[in-house]
Nucleic acid binder design. Structure first.
Lengths: 101, 101
DNA sequence: TCTAATGTTCTATTATTATAGTACTTTCAT
DNA sequence: ATGAAAGTACTATAATAATAGAACATTAGA
């Protein structure tokens, strides 16, 4: 099984998080997880090819925004809500609230 | 005198704001204005050429993050604190707090 | 009226990123 | 075992963005 690298709390940087969330597709993915809970990649209703989805999920994971867990053939994507809250208090909730319009 | 375009409140988009703030140089500029108030471009202590500074200030302005006012030969840059607060409540304060580490 | 100061514009370069097609890997179910 | 499902890896391309040099524009002040 492949090892997926997730940054540790201290290695999550604000610029990378903002960068990850500044793309409309990725913001939509994050919104979706916030609204409906963790999901496999193919559940996200965004208009991109599989390989592009891989790219976006990796970007979110490497920025420290999501946690990816392998379950069979699926990769379950969850928000690192608590880690983000610890590192950048209220950042994620405020962005999610801002994007919900 | 040159007319500088600033987006109206409704035309400020979250993705653009996050994108504008995801660059370390621009984040530093915004932090600096938050800490010391509005300033002319050449006051910012960032390691970039004049033309690059122009680019960053324009990016911030077009995203709706800053207001630029001409005063003689100087361009005074201020944060659009109230506009941003109205459009995306708490977003800027939370980002500033997150970046202050 | 020069000149210095401040910033823009234009142009070019390099780096990054979003995109997707194709082939491959892994796992589950039949 | 075989095949479908889910996703990755690799490769390529087009778009975007960061950078700066050089020339230019505008204003203030001597």
């Amino acid at each position: 099984m492949k090892i997926l690298h997730h940054p540790q709390l201290a290695d999550i940087h604000l610029c990378s998080v903002l960068q990850a969330l500044s793309d409309p597709i990725r913001l939509q993915i994050v919104q979706d997880i916030a609204a409906r809970g963790e999901q496999p990649c193919n559940n996200f209703n965004v208009p991109v090819a599989k390989s592009t989805m891989t790219h976006h999920i990796r970007t979110l994971r490497e920025a420290g925004v999501v946690q990816v867990r392998v379950q069979g053939t699926q990769h379950i994507v969850a928000l690192r809500t608590e880690d983000l809250q610890a590192r950048f208090p209220e950042l994620l909730p405020v962005i999610l609230k801002s994007s919900a319009e």
